[in-house]
Design a binder for these strands. Structure first.
Lengths: 249, 249
DNA sequence: GCGTGACTTTGATCAGGATCAAACCGGGTA
DNA sequence: TACCCGGTTTGATCCTGATCAAAGTCACGC
């Protein structure tokens, strides 16, 4: 039951049909696709650029095509908490509400596929399975958010870091379409500060815990941003989760 | 944009139609209601009783009728994190998945209205607006969960307690169908331990911070479980949130 | 009344992360 | 080459909340 966060991240799909890792896939029925083509357009952002500020009026909903965006909130005194990472195929915005509840910022270079909201909402009413897929995706995201609440509320700094690395390792393996395995190697897409904001820590603590995991032989670093996992089992031991989070697909 | 948690709690509705504060309301079209009557049944639990354990097979979805339940997860070493409070009209379970992702426990005496899953899923496909309402409710819950991540990740113990009290105050006022106002009085439905599990604190810290808020005149206690809020503004100042979380309806 | 048990409060001490501060590293550029 | 700048590491110290421990409160049953 644990590590569901990772599972949810592993199984993102085209929101229009059940094809994995595509924002909009080629299998969608032609007439629907045609209607989508009609109302969609693309936007590009550079790393660090804001996409939407909390409270902004949103005239579109969108889907991440490539890159990573973050969803976050900031208190007046500057404390910020990231509440989600938006990966390819993740949905941005919500039908039926027109002001954004959170800030969306491009973490890496980012391309999103936008759909004008009104026509998209009409499409939803005439094409029920889109609503059904959206419900399914939203329920998965809700489960993920709740899993993350355990990380934020109850895990130690070291467990938090290990949990984040385990998630990124799994997602990365899924994107490359192979199982995560011992010795795997991946790129850390986040700065220490972004990791801190995601984990409810300070960047110094993040840095120290990464150093500690390195010293303990749980991870190896190649430069600052590339990570090798000698043993997945050792890493997952550090997360505080048990191992039955489903098979490491 | 802040205090959306409270807003979401304020506006729970019948999931079958947009009537507030009812699990299933009388306005639903007669034929649908008839079909619902066909597949529904009630269950009662005493305070403290488990409703579902994480991983259990769920043969029903349900809706809270009266009382409060908690949604929580527990690590092997016993650390537990509550990830949601289920109040009247909240939905339990999810169409399309048959094992529960979290523990559900009755916090107070509890009545839920169950619907056998298979027929409910059929009903959803034949009655699209039920799916639409469920999507809307799920999106609200997702926003609430993400708001709570800020509380867990970035707020101090005192701010956490104040945030929880503010939420309960608003919900309580909403249930009594009047605006929360200075001097309002309500019942604290949670033990110190349950509050701690919700806030990612220990029960001693909860107790100490409640004492501190009392000493500071932010709240008054009548016994252990009844609270008076002399000034809502003072309380909200303590939450760390700004005041623009919408009007205190 | 008395005891019992669940819940709560309070005290003393400890430790995990935060904070403040300085140095380091690597890449870009003048 | 020297410089700068964003990101990172490391060190010293502080403080919030955890932990360990004991006592208080209240409702209940005998």
């Amino acid at each position: 039951m644990k590590l569901k966060m990772e599972m949810a991240l592993d199984t993102k799909e085209c929101w229009n049909c059940p094809i994995k890792h595509q924002a909009v896939c080629a299998r969608c029925e032609p007439d629907e696709l045609a209607r989508l083509e009609d109302i969609k357009y693309y936007r590009n952002y550079e790393a660090g650029q804001p996409v939407i500020w909390s409270g902004d009026h949103m005239e579109f909903v969108a889907s991440v095509v490539t890159g990573i965006a973050s969803l976050s909130q900031t208190m007046e005194d500057g404390r910020t908490q990231m509440v989600g990472l938006l990966l390819p195929s993740d949905f941005i915005g919500r039908p039926g509400r027109d002001s954004a509840p959170f800030d969306v910022v491009a973490v890496s270079d980012l391309t999103i596929c936008c759909f004008r909201k009104k026509p998209f909402e009409e499409l939803m009413t005439t094409t029920p399975h889109i609503g059904a897929r959206l419900l399914e995706m939203t329920l998965d995201e809700l489960d993920s958010a709740r899993e993350w609440m355990l990380v934020l509320g109850r895990k130690t700094a070291r467990e938090k870091i290990a949990s984040l690395l385990a998630i990124i390792a799994r997602r990365d393996a899924a994107l490359k379409k192979h199982a995560p395995k011992d010795g795997m190697y991946f790129d850390l897409p986040l700065t220490r500060e972004a990791m801190a904001d995601y984990l409810g820590l300070t960047l110094e603590t993040v840095s120290r815990q990464i150093s500690a995991l390195k010293k303990a032989g749980i991870i190896e670093l190649d430069g600052k941003r590339k990570v090798v996992i000698p043993s997945l089992e050792l890493l997952i031991n550090e997360t505080g989760d048990d191992m039955d989070g489903g098979p490491i697909v």
